[in-house]
Amino acid sequence: MVSVRESPTELGLSNDQLLDVLYKMMLSRAVGQRERMLNRMGKAPFAVTGEGHEATQVGTAYALVSGKDWAFPYYRDIGVALTLGQTARDLMLEFLARGENVSSGGRNMPSHFSDPKLRIVSGSAPVATQMPHAVGTAFAGKLRGLDEVSMVWFGDGATSKGDCHEAMNFAGVHKLPVVFVCENNQYAISVHWTKQMAVENVAVRAQGYGFPGVTVDGNDVLAVYGAAKEAVERARRGDGPTFIEAKTYRLVPHTSDDDDRRYRSREEVEEWSKKDPIPRFQAYLEEHGLLDEKTRDELAKKAAQEVDAATEYAENAPLPDPETALRHVFAE
C-alpha cells in the first residue's frame, strides 16, 4: 500500500490547492448527506451517495485536467463530478430530476453524471459497462495523436465482470492512456469482497495485462492523489495504463433502498468511521499548520451554504416537460 506521510507539498500541491482538495471532500460529503436527508423527507425517490469515498474520488479526479481529460464515473462518484467542475446545483438539479439538469434532463437516476463540456460521459446502471468506453476514448486519442487521458472509476464488484477484463486487456495490448480506478469499498451491495475475488489485492490482476497495478489507502487523499498523478503522467507520456485500487469503505448504505444492517455489523461501520477520510485530512493539515479551526469552520459553512442554495434553486426549478420524454432517441 502506498501512503504519503511526508510534507504536504511534496506532491506539488500548493497550500491553496490542498485546502481546495479538502473543500471538495467536504462539499461532496455535504451533498451526499443532503441528498439522503431529502430522500427521507420524501422529496426524491432515490439517493445513491459516496460518504467515505471522498479521498479516493477527489484525490484521483484532482490529477486530471478538467475539460481535456475524459472522465467515466460510476454512480457513487459525487466527489469526482464536483472536483471536475460540476456544481452542487448541478447535482441537486439531477437529484430532483429537474428539466434543466445537465446530466440527463430527468431521464437517468441521480448520481449518473454527464457533462459533455467537462467530458464527463453519461453512465448507466449496469456495472462496468463504462470501462470499454474509457478505453475507446483513449484509443481514439492515441489514433488522433492527442495527449488526453481517460480515467474510469468503478467498485470492487465491477472487477468480476467480463467488461472489466476485456477493457483492461484491450488497454494493455495497445498501451492506451487509461487510468482504472477501483474504489474498493469491500462490498458489492451486500456481497463481501471475499466472495468477489480470491486475492487480497485485486490490483495484482494488472500484471496479467502487462501494466502496473497499485494498491493505495483510499482514505488517505494524498496517497490517492500521488498514485493518480503518477498514473496520469505515465498515461500522458504514452507509457500505457495503470490500475489503482483504492481501499476504502462506504459509511452509508448502498442506496436509500438498502439496509446495510443485514450484511455488516455496526461495529465494523463504527470502526471505519474512525478512519473517515475527511477528519483525517483535516488533522493532517492542522498538524502541518495549513488549517486552523476558524478556516475549517468557514469551509464547512461555505459547503453548507452552497448546498442550501443549490437545494433551494433545484427545488424551485421546473420539472421536465412531459413530452420531452419522446425526444433524443436519435439525433435531432
Binding site: 475524459w70 470499454p132 478505453v135 475507446g136 481514439a140 488522433r144 467480463g162 486487456n169
Partner: peptide
Amino acid sequence: AESAIIGVAIGASLNGI
C-alpha cells in the same frame, strides 16, 4: 472480445472517431 469491440467503438465515437 465482442463486448470490448462495441464498448471501445462507443468510446472512440465520443472522441472524434
